[in-house]
Amino acid sequence: MKEVFFAKLDRAARYVTPFLLTVVLLLISHVPMNAPGMSRITPLLALISLFHWGVYRPDLLPAYSVFLLGLFHDILGGAGIGVWTLIYLLVYKVAELQRRFFFGKTFVWVWLGFSILAAFAIGIAWSINSLLTGQLIHLEAPAFQFLTTVGFYGPIAFVFFYCQKVLLVWD
């Protein structure tokens, strides 16, 4: 009986890990860095998380969790609601559909794949925000945000692989 309980707890912990890690990343990206100019170009850390789990373990992050994460991003940020919710869902789906392509590929290929997807995500965010506000938003900040997001992919992915090894043993 006791073993069943712990087995259940273990399963629950596995299922919750990717979600919680993404929540933590979302919170981190909203903490003021106090570095000059940094606030406007904070990397989209949660996007890295979505891509990673979409490619490697989509079974651990269901679509409704992705929806909730996007909603959380929209609520924390001050821009229009629903924008990042939609983008998160799209990014996750594309990552999940293309996952076969990334299997067995070197880090550089995966990184390149992520860069394309991040550009696509920030592009959509820019278009929707421009539409919602009725004017073309300057591309400067989104471009820098893209660069920092791509730059942060390496370290974050490293942490995720470590978590996968320690917490979520490959079935």
Binding site: S29, P32, S39, R40, L76, G77, G78, A79, W126, A141
Partner: peptide, 12 residues
Amino acid sequence: VIGDAGGAFAHT
């Protein structure tokens, strides 16, 4: 100031 929200598309 506890949060630097908004990112590239909103300044709050």
